[in-house]
Design a protein around this nucleic acid. Sequence first.
DNA 1: GTAGGGTTAG
Length: 875
Amino acid sequence: MMIIQAFFMKALATSLKRQTHFCTLKTRFNFPPRTSFCVSNHALAQRSEDDPDVHHLFDESPEGARCSNRLLFERSRNNRHSEVLSLFMGVHRSGLPVDGSTISCVLKACAYSLDQNFGVQIHGHCTKCGFLNDVSVGTSMVDMYFKNGSVERGRRLFDQMGERNVVSWTSLLTGYAQNGLDAEVLQLFVRMQSEGVQPGPFTFATVIGSLSGERMVEKGLQLQAAAIKNGFQTATPVCNSLVSIYSKSGRIREAKAVFDRLSDRTAVSWNSMVAGYATNGLHSEALEIFHHMRLVNAKPSNMTFAAVIKLCTSIKELGFQQQLHCLVLKTGFEFDQHIRIALMVGYSKCKVMDDAFEIFSALGEEARNVVAWTAMISGYLQNGKAKRAVELFLQMNRESVKPNEFTYSTILSASPMVSPHQVHAQAIKANSEKSPTVGTALLDTYVKLGEVDEGSKVFDRIEKKDIVAWSAMVAGYALKRDTEAAVKTFVEMAEHGIKPNEYTFSSVINACASSMAPVQQGKQLHAWSIKSTFNNAFCVSSALVTMYAKTGDILSANEVFRRQQDRDLVSWNSMISGYAQHGHVNNALQVFDEMRRQNMEMDGVTFIGVISACVHAGLVEEGQRYFDMMVRDHCVEPTMEHYSCLVDLYGRAGKLAKAMDIINGMPFPPSATVWRTLLGASRVHRNLELGSLAAEKLISLQPQDSAAYVLLSNMHAMAGNWKERARVRSLMDGRKVKKEAGYSWIEVKNKTYSFLAADSSHPMSNEIYEKLEELRMRLKDAGYQADTDHVLLDVDEEHKEAILSQHSERLAIAFGLIATPPGTPLRVMKNLRVCGDCHVVIKLISKIEGRYIVVRDTNRFHHFKDGSCSCGDYW
DNA sequence: GTAGGGTTAG
């Protein structure tokens, strides 16, 4: 007996070490509403020693023994597991006798505080003392192992048990269900009955609760019918499980109906309802039920907390989270591993990393499992503290805690601070690379680093590709602007029988939002999304608006936008940006006003749209006004893009000095884009001095960007500095920078035709040049004179005119004119900017041919109609 | 209790 006692004492001392952690935790936290809770809790934690009741423990009379056990049961019923362990230590210190029920309570405490070490020690000594013959001790022991995740140990013990009643069987079923082994639950349920053990209400409840899949409600109702046959008509546990599976299937109203009919609600009933609302995203309903539960004095269990803390995690309400934390302390769930981690995550989501870390540190070494580490690492990453996250990841490795799939996918978002190749290698060693979670995270990381090929290799190796993996691959191709591959992957996925969801649709539609993509492709996907009823999802309709706008069909973009019943910030931004790209200033500003009238939140992107709309229309003062409004009224910190817009605004309007002032006044060093903008404006307004400065800066930032050299050499050419021009050209050659060839393309009858300047490869080349010649004559009659400044070769005037007339956009338009019936609108795309002379010519063509012509050059649209352009000649 | 995919600008 003495030996056993010494053993227990030592083990309990370890357990109590955690209690010290717990006390530090409580005294260190400092939020206002919990003061009273914490004081009383602190007292409670110490009371086990001071409590007059506890003094009975040291009274070795039979009365004392009874008292100690009564107290222990009472504490156990109230889930005060830490006190159960502490009382148990008292019992042993005074050598009082212990019976089976006491051991059961202690095992329950081990199960809930995940203290398997202590549980194993008790197991060993129970074997020696013969306690294991007690069916309830055996059952508690089985339960303890399952709750600690030791499925095999629990099962072995169960098989060894001499006597097994319905409770033992139900514990076994519950254990399997809790460890996610749902398939075994049904098998065991059948075996239990074949061994002549009649299932009880809890057995039915466990089996119903473990159901999953499409037909789960149907199967659940069948089981309920069987339960009724067995005489459990009104059994609360069965109804609770029904509430759960109704919620899981999204049938929350039916869940509530079952709940409302329940006359005898237990903590589990309330939990199921709270969790049901929470998992269906009905936050306020979930809170209401929780509140209702507190009003009727129903005791929350660990499951209640798990559900409510998770809820609080999604609504990110710090105050509520803190109150819940107090409530956890007050109700004695502070040792529940799940709840501690849930609280950690809650604090992380509320951006209070110090409090999250406090809980993490208090966990004690053996409780710091991989889940806790991963949650903490994820918390730091979500709060932008990648460095801290990496430190923790390394420390976790040092402490020999093995990372799991969650850990690998989490740490990958710290790339490139953590080398994805290294994580990849580690994941391969751990045999995790093929898991969809890790594979998808790897694929996404590679894609975002520009290594799409590496990403698609990882994708091929993922064993069971789920919807997330497929969507990530589609998004990867979309990012690389590889429309063909994105659409191919999307179709392949559908052929594999995986139904695309809103994310997949938004990615694949986004892949079609490039001018290279055939317009028809995007339209087909639009139709597909309508058939799959995802067209109304925020992300899908925003992608559609952008796709239509970018492929030149601003009317369809607006139609999608107008049909939206509900819009979020991105929806509005997409429409404003769309109009801005098309130079439809008034429409852009109208949408902005509408947005403001509806009190929608606005962000930096909204203002980039609005200001760039002003840029295209030359509305200098208005643009500046919107910039000021953004800073003053919407407290948006201007970014590089905003300054870039301002430089563009003043630059295009010819106010180059003011543009330079903006650059000099920026709070950060100007980016390549800013210099490129200034360079463009200097070229239009022929300011060689500023242009050279901008070009030099741009070349120093991006020595491989051909556009900078080309613009600079063009400027020298315009000023007639052929020597300087040659210098720039040779610089370019020396650095092996290749000039991007200018080309245009046009879609006719779902086929795309592209043209280089002076191209003669088209089968209808002769007809095209005849049409151009005819146009040249008619333009001349209309009074057109070529603006040969746009030709930058050192050749004579007549030759220059010939070069101009063969610019790729003119070839594409000429082809469009002869290949389509009169009056058909033409849509032409160009990879470089349209030159000033072509701009004049296309305006005239739109008039003399009576055509509506849309030309898209570097990310901007020109709508030519009746001899004028939507850009108002500011471009 | 921990995890991976999407939408706006440039």
